[in-house]
Every structure is written in C-alpha cells, then in structure tokens.
C-alpha cells in the first residue's frame, strides 16, 4: 500500500473539513472494498477519512420509510429486528453478502457509494424507491446510479443515510459467484400495491438497472408463470470469465421467477 494519512473525525462536519484539507482524500467506511484496492496499489489517496466516529449507524422506521444510516454494517441490517419486521427482504439481502467477516465490517453506505456492478444493495435501493440522503441533498434512486462504479455523488459528498419505501411485498434472489459470493445475477422485486419494480444487479454493463418489461408484466399479473413470455435481451449484459451475456440473460429470468412468490 502507498503511504497515506489516516484521520478519524467525530462528525460529518469535521469529516468534510478533513477531506477538503487532504486534497485527494477518500472516505473510509467498512474498508472491505477500499483497503483491498489500496493493498493492490490501484489507488493512492493522500489520506483516508474514517467515517466510523460520525454516528451514522442508526436504523429506524420513519413514517412510510425505513431509514438506515450509511455506516450500518451488513451484520446489523441482517440482524435488525426493525428491518426484519418492515422489509425482511433487505435483511435477507444483507445476510447473503460475502461472508461473516465481510458482513461484520462492510457498510450499506460503502456498498451504495461504490456501485460495484455485482453488489447486492444497489438493486434494493433501486427497487425499493429509496432516497439517498447526503450532507447537502437528497437524491432519488432513479437518479443516483449513473454507470458501473459511477454515482451522482460529488467527490467530497458523504452519504449519511438511505430511506427505503415500505413495499407491500419484496424479495431478493441472487445466483452467487461460488468463489466471491458477489451476485453473478441478483434480482430485487418489490411490489407497491399495483406497481411492481424489478431491479437487476450483477448483469448490466452499465451497472444495476430496472427491467421495464418484467415490471409491466408483473404489474398486471404478479406470478412467476407470467414471466414465461418475456424475452430477456442479452445486449448490454456483461460477458466475462464467470458467465456469458446469454447465460446471464437466462439467469435474470430465472432469478426473477424465484423472487416472485
């Protein structure tokens, strides 16, 4: 790892000051993506601003939403009584991330800010009509993910929390990569009355995306059978050593069917 500076502020205000004074600084959350990246010398920030002292880890029901602090670790979301009650699919998603030790450190804010095309959380954010609250604005999920590893966040912007809309029903099913457990394809299906949202991760060359055709089919008939007629186009899907675009297209349909119960 290149040499770097480490600071641990006690509030987001101090964190913003710290990142400005560092030049090319980076926020450090769970470190489960950032530290391996630094170890492989794929990045050389002037400094790291640890957000773990900024008290951003609360989880609470707020009216029609479930609000989760950016520093809530995957294990906390997986084991939270409130999450299990209000959106059990989200607890299930968190419980399926990586392995126990990754879940003990990794955070929801880090996962969403990173927008890895194979990460699980972005699909929940998109399907559950979430709002991303930063230190100076609120961004709707539909405007947040702008491409593989790209988001609407500015360089010095901190995600403070994420509010998920409470669905009537929701489910997440992934086909994990057998080695890393990242999603080879993951599908989050959420029903809000007559509206259905289907978000697909692990498959798109541009990162997480909604599948409009499956959404409209499921809105008129919420059943796995109704998906049989849908044709999933492999254009724009990832082809790599793990799976071809055609195989991923097939997995998208299969995972969606399994998610519709």
């Amino acid at each position: 790892m290149y040499s770097t500076k480490y600071v641990k502020p006690n509030s987001t205000t101090e964190a913003l000051e710290a990142i400005k004074s560092l030049g090319d600084g980076k926020f450090l959350a769970g470190g489960m993506t950032l530290i391996p990246t630094l170890k492989q010398r794929l990045a050389s920030p002037d400094g790291l601003v640890d957000l773990s002292g900024c008290k951003l880890d609360s989880i609470a029901e707020e009216g029609e939403t479930l609000k989760i602090g950016a520093m809530a670790r995957h294990v906390s979301v997986a084991e939270s009584a409130v999450v299990k009650k209000v959106i059990p699919a989200l607890a299930k998603l968190a419980d399926g991330i990586g392995d126990r030790q990754v879940r003990n450190r990794g955070t929801i804010g880090g996962s969403v800010a990173n927008n890895d095309p194979s990460a699980c959380y972005p699909s929940a954010v998109l399907a559950l009509k979430a709002t991303i609250h930063t230190n100076n604005r609120s961004i709707a999920a539909d405007d947040f993910f702008t491409g593989m590893f790209e988001t609407a966040l500015e360089d010095d912007e901190i995600i403070e929390s994420i509010s998920f809309s409470k669905p009537t029903k929701a489910n997440y099913v992934k086909f994990p990569n057998p080695a890393s457990r990242y999603a080879m394809v993951g599908v989050f299906v959420a029903q809000f009355g007559d509206e259905v949202r289907v978000a697909v991760t692990g498959a798109g060359e541009g990162g997480v995306f909604r599948h409009q055709e499956m959404e409209s089919v499921l809105s008129s008939n919420f059943s796995a059978d109704s998906l049989s007629s849908v044709n999933i186009d492999s254009d724009g899907l990832i082809s790599d050593l793990h799976a071809s675009a055609e195989y991923r297209a097939n997995l998208i349909k299969e995972m969606t069917k399994r998610a519709v119960v």
Binding site: Y6, K8, G31, P36, L48, D50, S52, Q101
Partner: peptide, 12 residues
C-alpha cells in the same frame, strides 16, 4: 467480533 485483520488498518 470476527474480522479479517488484513483488511483493517491498525489505526482503525
């Protein structure tokens, strides 16, 4: 809590 000591800084 179990963690991977290779993926955390001593200062953390």
């Amino acid at each position: 809590v179990s963690v991977k000591a290779c993926t955390i800084l001593a200062k953390q």
